[in-house]
Amino acid sequence: MPATNLWPDFQAPEAINSPVFLLKEQATALQQKTKGLVLAGLRPASAPDGSFWVGFNLYSPALGEYTYRLFEVTYPPQFFPVTLTAADTAQTVQTLDQFKALLESVLRSSRTKQVVEAIMAQATALGAVEAGK
């Protein structure tokens, strides 16, 4: 007699509309855009009310332990509503499409551009020092 399996079929994790996958895609895209000079990583933590907290950190292999926290997102286990906090503003959205639009506005902001360019400049300068050692 075959073993009984009472579990349903599960969706592949990537098929679930999670804001985290969108963040991971953007991390990969940044690496391509900066030719590996600036990378992005997700730093998770648990928040006191049981929600999830993820920091979106920029870093560069040339800058050692340095990271720049560009923004943070918090969301419940069911993913929405998700709150994105960048600089002094916090915005909450209800759907993945809204989150995509909000994320695009943050990534394309002049402040983000300035931060990424500053890290690229610093990484390039220190990389040159390293090479000339």
Partner: peptide, 21 residues
Amino acid sequence: ASPIRRDLRARHSRCIGFAQA
């Protein structure tokens, strides 16, 4: 973040990330 821009709960959330950093 200033209380003018963020309520106490949002400032609490920001402290979680700050403490982790």
